[in-house]
Simulated assay, not measured.
Amino acid sequence: MHTIWLTGAEWLAVLRIGLGLWWLESWRHKDKKAWFERGSGIEWAAGVASRHRLPAVRKGFDRVVAPRPRVMAHIVVHAELALGLGLTAGFLTPVALAGGLLLNVLYFVLMIHDWAEQGQNAMMALISAVALFAMSWQTWSADSALGLFA
């Protein structure tokens, strides 16, 4: 079966690059000054975690995130940038896809009550899983050009 314009591997690369651009947009639209100086994203997440129905989420947030809001803000913001750049360029793609899948699952679990963003997280997680298991780094990627993950 022939596809229009591109091969199957090229469509997977388009999917991977689109996911990378999605992560870059997530990074771009954040108010970094508010995140880094006040931990504004972490403040919001604290409110969500405090009302979460799973005690493990509340306890985990209180133990890991709450004591270090600025560090966690940097981790979230820089992780989104790294995922976006890695997936768009196709550099260390399996690592970026696994990291993105993990981050989306964490977002999904944290925001179990906030259905406004659940569709986005579900779609990004699905694209990450498909791109990871279909080895989307084999086409149009720095990994392919460098002979990584052959």
Rank of each mutant, 00 (worst) to 15 (best):
D143K: 02
W137S: 04
M123A: 15
S144K: 13
A82T: 13
H74D: 01
S136H: 02
S136K: 00
D143T: 05
H52Q: 11
F149M: 09
M135N: 10
F133G: 04
A122V: 14
N104D: 14
R68P: 00
F149C: 04
L21I: 14
T3N: 10
H74N: 07
G119Y: 11
L110D: 04
L106W: 07
Q118F: 05
G100C: 09
I75E: 00
A82R: 04
W22H: 13
V95K: 00
L21C: 14
L81I: 04
S50D: 13
A116T: 14
D143W: 08
G47A: 03
G147A: 09
L97Y: 04
G119E: 07
A46S: 14
A129K: 01
W5K: 08
D31L: 07
G39S: 10
W35T: 08
L126V: 15
H2R: 14
P67E: 10
A46C: 05
F149K: 07
P55L: 06
L132R: 02
V48M: 07
G99P: 12
S40K: 09
I42K: 03
S50I: 06
M123P: 00
M1G: 13
A46R: 15
I4R: 08
D114Y: 12
V65R: 03
G18D: 01
I127R: 00
P94H: 12
S141Q: 08
A134E: 08
L87F: 13
V48H: 04
L15R: 00
T139Q: 13
G100K: 07
A131G: 05
G18A: 15
A34G: 05
V65M: 09
W23K: 00
W44Y: 15
D143I: 11
L103P: 00
W44V: 12
G39Y: 08
A129L: 15
F108V: 08
E37D: 14
H113S: 13
K33M: 03
H29G: 01
A45R: 02
E117Q: 10
V76Q: 02
F133A: 04
S40P: 00
L19S: 01
L24S: 03
T93H: 07
W5T: 10
E117A: 10
F133M: 10
V105D: 00
N121P: 06
A34E: 11
P67F: 11
T93N: 07
K59Y: 08
A45T: 08
G41D: 06
A96D: 01
L15P: 05
R58F: 12
L12T: 07
W22T: 12
A9T: 12
S50F: 05
F61L: 06
